[in-house]
């Protein structure tokens, strides 16, 4: 792709870089324990937890780096970090 004069870059284009490959640990979601507080989605540094219409969450494993903040902060222990089998 040719350089735009001045080097201007299209918005949101880091999405081509799938940081999911960085993970060692992966979040395991126990929906039955989830109290739908939305905290995990709010905190995720990598925009990898989205709330559904029912306010449960889905994880985007293309980008999740496995930091574990969601599991550490979940008030109802609904997320567990497990070693990912590759």
């Amino acid at each position: 792709m040719k350089i735009i004069i001045g080097g201007a870059v299209e918005p949101g284009s880091t999405r081509v870089n799938k940081t999911g490959g960085w993970r060692n640990f992966k979040p395991l979601y126990h929906q039955d324990k989830c109290i739908k507080c939305g905290l995990c989605s709010l905190l995720c540094p990598d925009c990898s937890i989205e709330e559904t219409e029912e306010k449960y969450v889905v994880f985007d494993f293309d980008f999740c780096k496995g930091c574990g903040i969601c599991a550490n902060e979940c008030p109802s222990d609904a997320i567990e970090m497990v070693l990912e089998e590759k």
Binding site: I3, G6, G7, E10, P11
Partner: peptide, 24 residues
Amino acid sequence: EYFLDTKNPMTFGAFADPTTYTEF
């Protein structure tokens, strides 16, 4: 053509690594 514009939100001043800096 390109400027800081909320209707066309571009990024200015990205960092160019060795694979692209020369061409600038």
